[in-house]
Amino acid sequence: MLVTSALISGLGLGSMYGLLALGFYITYSVSNTVNFSQGSSMMLGAVFAYAFTVTMGWPLALAVVASLALCAAYGIVVEWVAIRPFARRGSNAWLMATVAIGIVADNLVLFTFGKEPRGFPMPGLLSGSIKVFGVGVSPLQIAIPIAGLAMAGLLHAFSRRTRLGKALLAVVQNRDAASLMGINVGFAISAAFAVSTVFAGAAGILIAPLFNVHSDMGTLFGLKAFAVAILGGITSAWGVMIAGLLFGVIEALVTALLGSSYTQIVTFSLVIVALAIRPNGLFGRAEVKKV
């Protein structure tokens, strides 16, 4: 029972990490940069959705769409403000710049949304608790990994089936050749950041009913998701998603079996050990050394 419940908790959280980490994967593949404030993007998704559904009383579906659209806009702003001015000059300062924009975003939300954590109402369909292998879980906990995998699948389909998706894939694989196809690489990078923040925002909305909505809700998530992205090997989409599930399950298992005192020590130590053994992550490909 201990293990079963830990597995279910772990898979739910793990798919959240995976979704956020996919955002890291997308921007890193396209532009070799990441948004270190990915946690803030997640928080924005939840905050927007709360504002639209609870404060303004919109229907859930509309609120979700609108929130994700705003998240996409935020991603584009991050790319314009914190990535492009630096990447263009070959400077690494985008790293600190994304941290800075995260601080700004968190604090703007603190002063507009409010300082109190708010509860996101559980949609009626998913309320209550069901038994799985004798363990009580919220239907949402089952829905989250499914939605997470569905989002990952959607990303896969988007990149394979749509014009924009294929353009992104082309940029990932060969930036120069992509521009020779007439693909605007700068636009593709902006789009990648938009997709990345949409994923984070979706994670935020998905988890909101199980969690509390507040300006600080994404910080630790963002960091763990970065660990997951790196652990999976930031160059492999499925690797990142699997690493997310793995990380979530290990976290829950360590908590359940050894006790919560050891959770962070053990998980972060495992990250170091894993990277020492596989320097490009569990599922990443080695970069070819060219001379």
Partner: peptide, 29 residues
Amino acid sequence: ALPALRVRGPYLAMITIAFGFIVENITVE
């Protein structure tokens, strides 16, 4: 440095982040 030297870029960043967290948690526990 031993594990950190095998990796570069974001991987190195992650190892050092993990190290910081481990130290913080050890001081707690």
